[in-house]
Design a protein around this nucleic acid. Sequence first.
DNA 1: CGAGCGTTTGAACAGCGTCAAAACAAGTGG
DNA 2: CCACTTGTTTTGACGCTGTTCAAACGCTCG
Lengths: 231, 231
Amino acid sequence: MQVQSASATGARRSQPITLVSLTDALEAPGFVMGFGRNEEIFGEEQPADFVYRVVTGAVRTGRILRDGRRQITGFFLPGDVFGLELGELHRSGAEAVCEAEVALVRRSALKLSATGDGLAAHELWTLTAEALDRTETHLMLLGCKTAAERLASFLLAMAERCSGRGRVVDLPMCRQDIADYLGLTIETVSRSFSQLERERLIELPSSRAVMIRRWEALSALATAEDLQSAA
Amino acid sequence: MQVQSASATGARRSQPITLVSLTDALEAPGFVMGFGRNEEIFGEEQPADFVYRVVTGAVRTGRILRDGRRQITGFFLPGDVFGLELGELHRSGAEAVCEAEVALVRRSALKLSATGDGLAAHELWTLTAEALDRTETHLMLLGCKTAAERLASFLLAMAERCSGRGRVVDLPMCRQDIADYLGLTIETVSRSFSQLERERLIELPSSRAVMIRRWEALSALATAEDLQSAA
DNA sequence: CGAGCGTTTGAACAGCGTCAAAACAAGTGG
DNA sequence: CCACTTGTTTTGACGCTGTTCAAACGCTCG
């Protein structure tokens, strides 16, 4: 199913740049680009010449089917790396969810070839393995969970990531993005928000701001445990 | 929580091996274990001391929710590697779909540390990146596709993998496994089989043997292209 | 032959999608 | 400040896809 081997090890090592840590490279100044709301950062099947890291704002990655059905595979917040590929082409597209600044590193500077150094290679592997774990968790969500459970999982994940466990989470993305991420429609997402609010698990000061009122109950719903104790 | 995990049984303990290519190691004789149908190879959250490769038979990996809902994350056929983890624990469990022989390599022999050699590290990264791509494709399936489209995708993938594009695919797994892989129920899977057969896209000599009659139509269904010709 | 399992099929049901409209928010120009 | 616009979110009514519950069918193996 993969077409990687030939292309992956073949080309793209024209300039033997000094070995560079991905993290270091992405933190070096100078390669930062700004993107407007909904602006494309790279498209599906486009050459994967860069690896990206969110500096400010938020980014989404996803794939679309011919008839327009879209699956968002991930949201990326400041500090997150995205766009790292094994092959020569991006398998997913990426767009800015809102105004965003993104740092870039040339892929060729990363020594992806088989002879690259251990440090950078290990770093790449770590990033990819973490992405794999997230994606498998997401798979579980799409394959097994109900609409309310999906939304609960999503809100908890966002809360843990962006608000430093503060009580109010500010969602950078619209309902449609959430729907495409959770494998639901915009209407079902909205209804699930309302349901969680009715049940006093969350509060919605505005449609983009979510206050988590009962963390443990939301967590129980998200993980499909039996709900008993508080934490 | 099975005693039958690999670490418990008599996989020959080897001396600290010199740096080894994963592929080479998995092809070396001596570290092969046999498993019976539905036997656990390793459990969710168990120590990830080994990496595995299917020699004969078939293996499934997956995660379960507390209430029993299960998501199968992958099927593995002869030659496929599974059970490779970034951390110390397996995030998914693995079981034999049918009688299966599996080759093992001690994880410690792979030099996963940051100072490991470039070749093995690149190999690990490649394996993980391929798994990520497969998982994202699977995500698309679960998030966007209808029951018939899911089954069509699955059958085509199986056909490409195991039968060398011969016309008859022999499925090693039962309907329940397929259902849990596709995020459906066993009944819906069965009905979808019947539907594809009624529409003459496939033929079912037996419930486990699938003959693909109209590859291109099945492919169009699977990838959600516009379907022109009908049954 | 019968027991046990896996698969298929049927009928009723429900969760989520679809279609439609209303409520809401944020600009923009008068 | 207020109409008017445009885009987003919410809500309602209805229908379809897939689930649930149940039964029948077809294997394989004693």
